[in-house]
Design a protein around this nucleic acid. Structure first.
Length: 574
DNA sequence: GCCGTTTTCGGCCCGACTGTTTTCAGTCG
């Protein structure tokens, strides 16, 4: 069974969580978490590294012991020590940690006091008001737990990046089947939504042997459950929990089926309505005039029959794209190639994994001509954020580095914290020396909408701020963004010459697609930043691009499609 | 459990906030 990096990461994370609950040495716990993080950021495939006998201890945070454990996971698919822990503590206790106000100590306490070791019992105990009786817990905490449980019950979708890993592996497996012609992963995956529910894979048949294709499909090693298996349609569940549906159609129908399975549902309904008006009928098998198929082999063909150009999947949400297509006024969506530089990165100076030099090298390989280093400021103590002195040192360091570089410019930047009262975490006279000041909120998120809006507005008005980073502070599947009136912020930003960031970090993607569109409508340029914490993280840009495309952004809507020379001119004077 | 120009032991991130307490544990970033 192929072992993905994310599988190993999950096992190490579960180890950390269970050890933590058990009350193990916190540094030992941290070691597991660090290793899990390393694997999450790794661009190489660990399974391959093990097979090729590469020395895993060269990876950061992985020593003899963890290297051995990782090999065990690669070879057996599991880790005996974790299995042991799971026998001792209920593995469901790990899920209890997902309740926002519960950490390892409280989970342990709940177990010791009431024997609670799963979410169901937790909910029951909270409803029966038993939790408030435990020492250290109270009425408020109990009520909070109940609300948080409610929120967790909402459907959880897989992050696009994680779905991508699974989808790509499955895709290459399917390519090995002789009976398959074209393959496309459709659905919200193809529309590049920030999260994906099921994976819908569409294939065209290269021969007549459907059964062989389906046999191949359900024969994939990653499968834990075959939900259904038919001649043209099968469904399976993978180890990662993701459901995958396979649909096989004839070559002549591939385009129509692709349109159908890509969705969105609302988009499809509009397209079909339009077809009906013209006397056609559209199904996943094609466009039909009476009994005769008049299109359907390609998506372009289907759209063309309705006098429309092909519509990029990212736009297919029935948000005006059909009207725009019919009027031939679809946006010319931004692509990664349009990006000239990255405006949000971290290095080893704070919580990044690579040095500025290494990041620069990777950025050049990406084809960029500039990159801003934007470390955290001192308020983010956890990562040793820069104080005024540290920032000045770094500015000097970058100056020196720039003198050795040709055709590339490192921008001396900072991701300065917006404090509780809207003031900035660093002195203006130091910020003034930066090429670029990115400002963001990390702490004291628990504010009213009005207070948070005013707090951010104050930063917008600050003469040193150029960009507001991850403006709502959300983390997908983890926490909602803080309440903030973005329209007001953007309107002020427009007047103040401040730009809004779309953060490419796969679990942030903040701004959302709809916010991007709002910015475009208001005439505020968006800054695309990868928020890379390693050289590999620079590729987060692609998720940012997808999100930007979903927000209808074109080249001229994005700040860093400009050269540094051009960009510098439109940054506000300090 | 990792790491190392103080190298095989001893340090490893730490302050703010919340809700619980009445001096602090737990969580978060």
């Amino acid at each position: 069974m192929p072992v993905h990096n994310s599988d190993i990461k999950k096992i190490l994370k579960d180890m950390a969580d269970l050890l933590d609950i058990k009350g193990a040495n916190e540094f030992r716990v941290r070691a597991y978490r660090n290793a899990a993080r390393t694997l999450g950021q790794l661009s190489k495939n660990v399974e391959e590294m093990v097979r090729e006998g590469e020395d895993l201890t060269r990876l950061e945070g992985i020593g003899e012991d963890l290297a051995g454990k990782i090999e065990e996971i690669v070879n057996t698919g599991t880790l005996e020590q974790l299995e042991e822990l799971k026998r001792e503590l209920n593995p469901e206790m790990v899920r209890m940690l997902e309740v926002a106000s519960l950490g390892p100590r409280r989970v342990k306490k709940l177990y010791d006091a009431l024997g609670i070791n799963n979410l169901k019992d937790l909910k029951e105990a909270a409803q029966k008001k038993k939790i408030r009786e435990i020492e250290g817990f109270g009425k408020k905490t109990e009520e909070k737990i109940l609300t948080e449980l409610q929120e967790m019950g909402e459907e959880k979708r897989t992050l696009l990046k994680e779905a991508e890993e699974v989808a790509e592996a499955f895709y290459s497996y399917l390519q090995k089947s002789e009976g398959i012609g074209q393959i496309e992963v459709a659905g919200s995956y193809r529309r590049r939504k920030e999260t994906v529910g099921d994976l819908d894979i569409l294939v065209s048949l290269a021969g007549k042997d459907n059964n062989r294709v389906m046999e191949h499909f359900v024969g994939y090693e990653d499968i834990t459950e075959i939900i259904s298996k038919g001649e043209t349609k099968s469904s399976v569940r993978l180890k990662s929990g993701i459901q995958v549906d396979l649909r096989a159609v004839e070559k002549e129908s591939f385009g129509a089926a692709l349109l159908y399975f890509t969705g969105s549902k609302a988009h499809n309904i509009e397209v079909r309505k339009l077809a009906l008006e013209r006397g056609y009928k559209i199904s996943e098998y094609g466009v039909f005039e009476g009994e005769t198929q008049v299109a359907g082999e390609t998506e372009e063909g289907v759209y063309q029959k309705l006098d429309m150009p092909w519509i990029p999947p990212q736009l297919r949400e029935n948000q005006g794209e059909i009207k725009a297509a019919r009027e031939n006024s679809l946006p010319s969506l931004i692509t990664w190639k349009d990006i000239q530089g990255d405006l949000h990165t971290h290095s080893t100076r704070t919580d990044g994994r690579n040095t500025i030099k290494e990041m620069v090298e990777a950025a050049r390989k990406q084809g960029y001509s500039y990159m801003a280093v934007t470390e955290h400021s001192k308020r983010v103590r956890m990562v040793n954020g820069l104080d005024e002195k540290g920032l000045l040192e770094q500015i000097e360091e970058i100056k020196e580095l720039n003198s050795t570089l040709e055709g590339f410019r490192v921008l001396a930047g900072i991701e300065v914290d917006i404090l509780y009262d809207g003031s900035l975490d660093l002195e203006g006279e130091v910020l003034e020396k930066c090429d670029l000041v990115v400002a963001s909120v990390h702490y004291n998120r628990n504010m009213s909408r009005e207070a948070m809006t005013n707090r951010i507005l104050k930063a917008v008005e600050n003469p040193h701020v150029n960009i507001i980073a991850h403006p709502t502070g959300r983390e997908i599947n983890k926490r909602r963004g803080y309440p903030v009136d973005l329209e007001k912020v953007m309107t002020e930003a427009k007047g103040a010459g401040v730009f809004m960031e779309l953060n490419g970090y796969p679990s942030r993607l903040d701004l959302k697609d709809t916010h991007c569109r709002m910015a475009k409508d208001l005439g505020v340029k968006i800054s695309l930043g990868s928020d890379a914490h390693s050289t590999g993280g620079l590729t987060n840009m692609k998720y940012g691009i997808d999100q930007a495309r979903r927000g209808w952004l074109e080249r001229e809507d994005v700040l860093n499609t400009l050269s540094w020379k051009e960009l510098k001119k439109i940054l506000k004077k300090k």
